[in-house]
Design a protein around this nucleic acid. Structure first.
Length: 445
RNA sequence: GCCCCGUUCGUCUAGCGGUCAGGACGCGGCCCUCUCACGGCUGAAACAGGAGUUCGAUUCUCCUACGGGGCGCCA
């Protein structure tokens, strides 16, 4: 059976480093298996869902390179859910309840205070037809709960292994709100069953839901898909990673100039037994993907680790992969320039700085005017080749007696205006004699 | 409060009764090099605590501590 998976975000916010992982895992798995990857917007919560987030999530996925085969949204399938609900009512698995949200909330608090788990007591099940009629006459609107079978419900999780949940410890979930609109648990399963999702890959915050959903699949007469629940991420200090996600949003990382491939690599390798190494493509990542490698313990997300990975990725990137991006920025210099500077990049945009060192105008820093002046007189005439640097520095060394740091540091400062940077042997031919001369003389060039 | 899951170098992890407890990132040292960075090599660094079971526990069981998740007319 061909693999069919989905990523089903609710458009109530942008994607971030935490909730991108189910998208990444699903996509990678589909890619590895040659399956289909669906994007479904779970927008049944009209209060919180916003159109701008639909667009934003699409942008985030596109930037990451996670192309989807089909897209649909739940708000456009309301008749379908209503029909599915009718079936459940007929089979007696959906029953009407009349408690208000306040009443339920009070009841839960009372149960917890008594040390009991806050599970719905099925009081509505005992309501007679007359009592229901009376409640309706008072203007109460029914919401509908799914009648769970109180038995242990089990599945073999692709990541966590054999799982078992006692359905008696869970409340009968509300599937239809008092206003008639369907809720996540129901729409999600109805859709997964309808489109034939084969594998549900998601965060471990959904493991308890799984028991309910398995019973729902069965009640709907649909085959139960395979489940895989991955570990969640915590902050660098081990704290829950749900609040304060501004800088951790995908859009934010993009603005910081990180490579999408670095973000993808980090998202898919963190919390697994694979070493966090730069990968050359999404295909390479897909080949690495394996449920067996995913840990069950939460993993810490450290922004510094992501940045480090981004830098390493850049350091290993061949010229052909960035030639277009360089020319888009108005950077020439070809492969020689890229190879000279790539090892000094943290983010791609750092190339601008090195391009201005080579091609633009910079302010030289003169540490020892007499020294650089003397070095200037020893600068060989052009044409220059790759051997110009050792040839020149050898001459300067002989004339001044300077060596090591005393020799190179002032030259680097004068030539680039910076403390650190690429090999000067590679940079000097790119800078050229004209600029080099001016800078050694302390003049901006 | 109740239920589920987890805890191995600082971090991500391998391990599935007997291992010098392995790898990666980071950190230190050396090399490339007569500078900084890059890269290569190399070193230091861990079984949460306590009871059991066993000839023998990182590994199995229980308890405690800590962390995560769940307990919505959210997804």
């Amino acid at each position: 059976m061909p693999v069919k998976v989905r990523f089903a975000p609710s458009p109530t916010g942008r994607l971030h480093i935490g909730n991108i992982r189910p998208a990444v895992f699903n996509w990678l798995f589909a890619r590895r298996e040659g399956g289909t990857f669906l994007l479904r917007f779970d927008d049944t919560d009209l209060e919180r869902s916003k159109e701008e987030y639909v667009t934003g999530i699409r942008d985030d996925l596109t930037w990451l390179g996670l192309a989807w085969d089909e897209e649909f949204r739940q708000s456009q399938r309301l008749e379908f859910y209503a029909a599915a609900a009718e079936k459940l009512k007929k089979s007696g698995r959906l029953y009407a309840c009349y408690e208000t949200a306040d009443e339920l909330e009070r009841r839960r608090k009372r149960q917890m205070a008594r040390g009991k788990p806050p599970v719905y007591d099925r009081a509505a099940l005992k309501l007679t037809a007359e009592e229901k009629k009376e409640l309706e006459a008072q203007g109460r609107k029914a919401h509908w709960r799914f009648l769970l079978e109180h038995r242990r419900t089990a599945w073999d999780d692709l990541i966590r292994g054999p799982q078992e949940i006692d359905a008696a410890s869970i409340s009968d979930p509300v599937l239809i709100r008092g206003d008639g609109t369907p809720l996540y648990t129901f729409t999600s399963v109805a859709d997964d069953a309808d489109v034939g999702i084969t594998h549900i890959i998601r965060g471990e915050d959904h493991v308890t839901n799984t028991a309910v959903q398995i019973q729902l699949f069965e009640a709907l007469g649909a085959p139960v898909p395979a489940f895989a629940h991955h570990n969640l991420l915590t902050g660098a200090q081990g704290e829950a990673l749900s609040k304060r996600l501004g800088s951790l949003s995908i859009a934010g990382l993009r603005e910081e100039g990180l490579e999408p491939l670095a973000v993808m690599t980090h998202a898919s390798l963190i919390g697994t037994s694979d070493a966090l190494q730069p990968q050359e493509s999404l295909e390479a990542l897909a080949k690495l993907f394996d449920f067996a490698k995913v840990s069950r313990a939460p993993a810490r997300f450290d922004p510094e680790e992501l940045k480090g990975l981004n830098a390493k990725l850049l350091h290993a990137t061949p010229y052909a992969a960035v030639a277009n991006r360089l020319s888009e920025r108005g950077i020439g210099g070809g492969e020689a320039f890229w190879l000279a500077v790539r090892a000094n990049l943290g983010v791609f945009a750092d190339v601008d700085q090195w391009w201005s060192v080579v091609h633009g105008n910079i302010e030289p820093v003169i540490e020892d005017a007499a020294f650089t002046a003397q070095a200037l007189t020893l600068l060989p005439p052009e044409p220059w080749d790759a051997g110009i640097w050792p040839q020149w520095t050898e001459a300067v060394k002989k004339a001044t007696g300077a060596k090591g740091r005393a020799l190179f540091h002032p030259l680097r400062l004068a030539l680039t205006g910076l403390e650190r940077g690429p090999e000067l042997k590679d940079l000097l031919p790119l800078i050229g004699r004209k600029k080099a001369s001016a800078r050694l003389a302390g003049k901006p060039a």
